[in-house]
Amino acid sequence: MEVRTIKVFTTVDNINLHTQVVDMSMTYGQQFGPTYLDGADVTKIKPHNSHEGKTFYVLPNDDTLRVEAFEYYHTTDPSFLGRYMSALNHTKKWKYPQVNGLTSIKWADNNCYLATALLTLQQIELKFNPPALQDAYYRARAGEAANFCALILAYCNKTVGELGDVRETMSYLFQHANLDSCKRVLNVVCKTCGQQQTTLKGVEAVMYMGTLSYEQFKKGVQIPCTCGKQATKYLVQQESPFVMMSAPPAQYELKHGTFTCASEYTGNYQCGHYKHITSKETLYCIDGALLTKSSEYKGPITDVFYKENSYTTTIK
């Protein structure tokens, strides 16, 4: 009895394709271990004539594949690729409408935090270190965002349907971005203890939790000093293409032309909904596939993004 075979390709990165001759009487799992086709788990399936010449994702289970996976995804987590594939199996079914010149995501599976993050990423200057993220990001900007969303979920250790947080998501993504040249110098002034300067680099240099107003941050924000008295913390120097200011959701007025974009969060910790506000020729609110415009805006804002380049204080 002759062994019926077909020729397929296996890959971990969709760049390096490895030619395989597979036995049609055995499952993919018996031949390769966990195997995925377009995100779908085909591990328990036997090869079919229609699979001839198709590319299958496999887990990096030998040295060659491990090197290829690390170079593309910059992670050695053995569960990463499987999590990416199972997320992709959902995100490829989502709709990605162009809204006001940006790629958004039609609401499904509690994905409003991903839509808000995706919209924000198209408006701030950011370059990702893992080629996987950078490639998928370019495709997302062009309207094909399924891979990018699935990668975000995998890097953030999230599953489809789980509630997510924009600030946490951005923080994970910033860790995989090139923020080497970003720098922030802060000064804390206390009447009792004097003053202390701190220099922050990388992710810490672009994120701040405690106030939404970048102007206020430049002037000074009140913080408790270690001595128990009130101290003032203010920005001395900022070198970065953008800054992200966050605070627990509270009524906040966004003035046209003073910011790049913002995240609105309605609801409580267990259950809520994100919308995205962007400042173009007027203010726009993007909620999944829905767009509304207004000249002014007041609502429960939790993150505001500002364009920056270089700032030095005039406070002496």
Rank of each mutant, 00 (worst) to 15 (best):
T260P: 02
L283N: 04
C285G: 10
V8D: 05
T159Y: 07
E68K: 15
E71R: 13
A247I: 11
D303N: 12
G161A: 02
T313W: 09
Q30E: 09
K46I: 13
K127Q: 08
M24N: 11
K218P: 04
Y137K: 01
P248K: 13
D23P: 10
C182Y: 05
V160K: 01
P34H: 10
H48F: 09
E71F: 11
S213L: 05
N147F: 00
D38L: 11
E52R: 11
K93R: 13
Y113D: 04
N187H: 13
N14S: 12
E215N: 09
L118I: 09
F305H: 04
E168Y: 01
Y269T: 12
P224A: 13
S240E: 05
S171D: 00
V166C: 10
T282S: 12
K191S: 12
D135R: 10
A108D: 15
L151E: 00
Y172N: 15
T302A: 08
N129L: 08
L114V: 07
G29P: 00
L186F: 15
T282L: 12
T258M: 15
A247R: 07
V99W: 09
S310T: 01
G267F: 09
T199H: 10
F217V: 08
T116M: 05
A289S: 15
N110I: 00
Y57K: 05
S295I: 15
Q175Y: 15
S104W: 00
V236M: 11
Q237P: 05
D135T: 11
S310A: 09
M207C: 14
S50V: 14
M170H: 03
Y137E: 02
Y84M: 06
V99Q: 06
R141L: 13
T292Q: 15
A136M: 08
A247C: 10
F70V: 11
C149L: 07
K275H: 04
G101E: 07
Y234V: 10
A136W: 05
T120N: 08
Y306D: 05
Q98P: 00
G288A: 05
M26Q: 14
I286Q: 03
M244Y: 06
K316D: 15
G257M: 06
C225Y: 03
F217D: 04
Q123C: 04
E52N: 12
D109I: 00
L59I: 15
F305E: 03
I277F: 07
V221C: 07
N309R: 10
I315V: 14
D109W: 01
Q196V: 12
T103N: 00
T313I: 08
Y113K: 04
K44C: 15
Q197G: 08
K218W: 06
R167M: 05
A177P: 00
E204W: 03
A150E: 02
T11R: 02
Q195E: 15
H18T: 12
D165F: 00
D287V: 00
C193H: 06
H256A: 10
Y274A: 08
H176P: 01
H90A: 11
C190E: 00
N309F: 08
E52T: 13
D23C: 14
T27S: 10
Y137T: 01
L17N: 14
V304H: 04
S246P: 05
K229R: 13
V243W: 03
C112P: 07
K201R: 12
Y36T: 01
G257T: 08
V3C: 14
L81A: 06
Q237M: 11
L65S: 13
T120S: 15
F128L: 02
I45T: 13
G272H: 05
F217W: 02
G272F: 07
K255W: 05
F148M: 11
T292E: 08
D303Y: 02
C182L: 03
T198M: 14
C225S: 03
M209A: 05
D287C: 00
F80W: 00
Y311I: 07
Y138Q: 14
H51A: 05
P300W: 12
I105F: 01
E264I: 14
L291N: 09
Y214C: 04
V67E: 07
Y306N: 05
Y172W: 10
Q195A: 15
R4S: 13
P60Q: 04
R4Y: 12
E253W: 11
Q251N: 10
I15E: 11
T278L: 10
Y284S: 08
Y214W: 08
G161T: 02
E308K: 03
G29R: 01
R4Q: 13
L59A: 06
H176G: 01
L114M: 05
E264V: 15
K191G: 14
T10K: 13
V42Q: 08
R167V: 02
T43P: 00
G164T: 05
M207I: 07
H18I: 07
A87M: 12
W94K: 00
H256N: 09
G267S: 10
A231V: 07
I6V: 13
P131Y: 01
S213G: 07
G267R: 15
Y284G: 06
C227I: 03
K280P: 03
M26C: 14
Q251Y: 08
G53C: 10
L118S: 00
P224K: 15
W94V: 01
G220L: 03
K158T: 05
L235T: 03
Q238Y: 02
F80T: 00
F217R: 05
T91Y: 04
K95T: 15
D38E: 14
V243Q: 05
F242G: 04
Y214P: 07
G33W: 01
I45N: 04
Q238W: 01
Y137R: 03
A117R: 02
Y84K: 03
K218E: 05
Y155S: 00
